[in-house]
Computed example of a mutant assay.
Amino acid sequence: MANATGRPTAPLVLSEAEREYLERQVRKHRVARSLSERCRIILRCGEGVPSKVVADELGVHEHTVGKWRRRFLKDRLDGLLDEVRPGRPRTIDDDQIAAVIERTLRSTPSDATHWSIRSMAGATGFSHTTIRRIWNAFGLQPHRTETFKLSSDPLFVDKVRDIVGLYLSPPNRALVLSVDEKSQIQALDREQPVVPMMPGVPERRTHSYVRHGTTTLFAALDVASGFVIGKCYKRHRATEFLDFLKQIDASVPSDLDVHIVMDNYATHKISVRSIT
C-alpha cells in the first residue's frame, strides 16, 4: 500500500539580516506577544523544523504555523505585520499626537501639579478618550510618581553583595532573619460585638470603634521558609528591641547560628552594642 503524501512544503531560507531581526524581536521585552510568537515560528521553520513540530513546541495550531510561513515566503518580514483593517480614517495626525506628548512631558497645568486626562483634553481640544488612547499607547501616567535614593556610602556595593549572598547562599547550620518593626499601629476595637454571618445576611459590625492606644510590632522573617517571629510592645525603645532579640534567641534551635539583617535605626545600634 502506497504511503499518502501531502502537499510539498516550500523551503524557507533566512538571510543573515532577517535572522538577526527575528532574534532581536524575540529578545525584546517590550514587543507585542503576537509579533514575538510569529518571529519564533519563522525562526524554527528556518531551521528546517516541520510545521507540526513547531506548533507543538510553541503551543499553537498547525494552521497558524502554516499561515505565517506562507505570508513570510510571500512578503518576507513585512508579512509578519498585521494587515491594515478597514475602519474610520484617522482624524489626528502624527504632529498633533507629538504635540500632546510634548505638552504632557514638558509642562504642567496652571491650577494643578500634573495633567489629568480631562484637563489635557480641555487644553488641546481633543476628547478625553483620545487623550487616554495616546497616553496608553506611549505609557504616559502623569498622576504617578516614584521615589528613589542613591546611597553615598562608598562601600554600598560591597555591603549589598554581602547581604544578597547571605540570603541566596547562607552558611551551613545557619538561619538568616530579616528584622524590622512597625510602630504606631492603632489598636482599635468595635464598640459592640460583631454579628456573625447567617443565611441571607452578611456579617455586620458597628461603624464606630474604641481606641486602645497604639502598639509596635517587632518581627523577624525567615526569608527561606516564610516563617515569622513577632511580638507587640507598648513602646518602641532599645529595651523592647533587646527583649525581642532575646525572644528570637529562645525560639531558634541552639545548634543554629543566627544571622540578622536590619537597617541602621538608632534603636538597633544601641541594642546590638548592649549585647556585645
Results as ranks from 00 to 15, higher is better:
82 D>S: 13
66 G>E: 04
79 G>C: 09
95 D>G: 07
149 K>P: 01
135 W>K: 05
204 R>Y: 07
168 L>E: 10
201 V>P: 14
269 K>C: 08
155 L>Q: 11
36 S>Q: 15
81 L>Y: 07
234 K>W: 14
59 G>K: 07
196 P>V: 03
116 S>A: 04
204 R>S: 10
186 Q>W: 15
257 D>K: 14
51 S>F: 02
159 K>L: 04
223 V>Y: 10
253 P>W: 05
210 V>P: 07
160 V>Q: 12
64 T>V: 06
138 F>G: 02
57 E>S: 08
41 I>R: 04
259 H>K: 04
35 L>Q: 02
26 V>W: 05
245 L>M: 13
11 P>D: 01
150 L>W: 05
251 S>K: 11
269 K>S: 11
114 H>M: 02
43 L>G: 01
44 R>V: 00
103 R>I: 13
11 P>I: 01
97 I>E: 10
273 R>Y: 15
205 R>T: 07
66 G>T: 01
139 G>R: 11
13 V>S: 08
233 Y>T: 05
123 A>S: 10
37 E>L: 14
209 Y>V: 10
15 S>D: 13
196 P>M: 03
87 G>H: 06
200 G>A: 00
101 I>D: 01
164 V>R: 04
78 D>V: 15
11 P>W: 00
78 D>C: 12
183 S>M: 13
126 F>E: 13
266 A>T: 13
40 R>W: 01
86 P>S: 06
188 L>A: 10
73 L>H: 00
39 C>N: 00
38 R>I: 00
46 G>H: 04
129 T>S: 10
208 S>I: 11
219 A>L: 08
241 F>Y: 15
248 I>C: 03
112 A>H: 02
175 L>N: 00
238 A>C: 11
88 R>E: 06
124 T>I: 07
240 E>I: 11
15 S>E: 15
34 S>Y: 10
253 P>Y: 02
51 S>A: 14
175 L>I: 09
171 P>V: 09
173 R>I: 02
241 F>A: 04
51 S>H: 08
227 F>G: 01
274 S>R: 14
184 Q>W: 11
143 H>R: 05
173 R>F: 06
172 N>L: 14
29 H>N: 15
177 L>E: 02
131 I>M: 11
29 H>D: 13
255 D>S: 05
49 V>Y: 02
261 V>P: 00
235 R>Y: 12
207 H>I: 12
180 D>L: 03
274 S>I: 13
226 G>P: 01
256 L>R: 05
122 G>I: 14
252 V>M: 03
161 R>F: 11
15 S>W: 12
221 L>D: 00
161 R>E: 09
50 P>Y: 05
97 I>Y: 05
143 H>V: 05
264 N>D: 07
242 L>T: 10
120 M>E: 03
111 D>R: 10
178 S>Q: 03
65 V>W: 01
252 V>I: 09
125 G>L: 07
232 C>Y: 15
264 N>A: 14
95 D>A: 11
268 H>A: 08
53 V>E: 11
16 E>A: 09
197 M>K: 12
69 R>K: 06
133 R>Q: 11
152 S>Q: 14
